[in-house]
Amino acid sequence: MRNGVRGREAPRRWTPGQAPPEVVLVAATERLQDEVARIAAAAGMALRVVDGPGQPGVAADGATVLLAGGATGGMPGVGGDVIVVGFAAESARLWELAAAVGAHRVAVLPDAAAWLAEYLGRHRHPDRTGTVAAVFGSSGGLGCSTLSCWLAAQAAADGVPTLLVDGDVLGGGLDSLLGAQAEPGLRWQDLAGVKGSIGPAQLQSALPVVGGFSLLSWGPEPAGTGRQVPVEVVREAVSAAAAGFDLVIIDAGRLHAGLDGWLGQAGQAVLVAGAGERGLRAAAAAAAALQPLVPLAVIRGPLPAGMDDELAAERLQLPLGAYIPRLAGMVAVEHGGRLLAKGRTRAVARRTRPLLGLLAAGRQTGDRR
Rank of each mutant, 00 (worst) to 15 (best):
M1C: 11
M1A: 15
R2K: 10
R2F: 06
N3Y: 12
V5S: 11
G17T: 14
E22F: 03
E22N: 01
L25Y: 04
L25E: 09
A27Q: 11
R31K: 12
A40I: 07
A40H: 10
A42Q: 14
L47H: 10
V49G: 12
V50Q: 07
D51Q: 13
P53V: 08
P56T: 14
D61T: 09
D61W: 06
G62V: 04
V65T: 11
V65S: 08
A71D: 06
T72F: 01
V78G: 04
I83V: 15
V84D: 04
F87Q: 09
L97V: 04
V101Y: 05
G102N: 08
R105L: 12
V106Y: 04
A107P: 02
P110K: 03
A112Y: 02
A113F: 02
A113P: 00
T131K: 05
F136K: 10
G140P: 02
G140E: 04
G141M: 02
L147P: 00
A152E: 01
D158K: 10
G159T: 07
V165L: 06
D166A: 00
G167N: 01
G167C: 02
L170V: 13
L170W: 05
L174Y: 01
D175L: 08
D175C: 05
L177G: 01
Q181E: 15
G185I: 11
L186G: 04
Q189F: 07
Q189K: 12
Q189E: 12
Q189R: 13
S197D: 11
L203P: 01
P208Y: 08
P208R: 07
P208G: 11
V210R: 03
V210G: 01
F213T: 00
S214F: 00
W218M: 11
G219H: 09
G219Q: 13
P220D: 14
A223F: 07
G224V: 10
T225I: 14
Q228L: 10
E232Q: 13
E232C: 05
E232D: 13
V234L: 14
V234Q: 10
R235I: 08
A237G: 06
A243Y: 02
D251I: 04
A252N: 05
G258R: 05
W262H: 08
G274C: 11
E277H: 09
E277L: 13
R278M: 15
A283H: 11
A287K: 13
Q291P: 00
Q291Y: 03
V294G: 06
A297Y: 13
V298W: 10
V298A: 11
E310M: 14
A313F: 14
L318Y: 01
L318R: 10
P319G: 04
P319Q: 06
L320N: 07
H335V: 00
L340M: 03
A349T: 00
P354A: 05
L356W: 08
A360N: 08
R363Q: 09
Q364L: 15
T365Q: 15
T365E: 12
D367W: 10
R368D: 05
R368M: 12
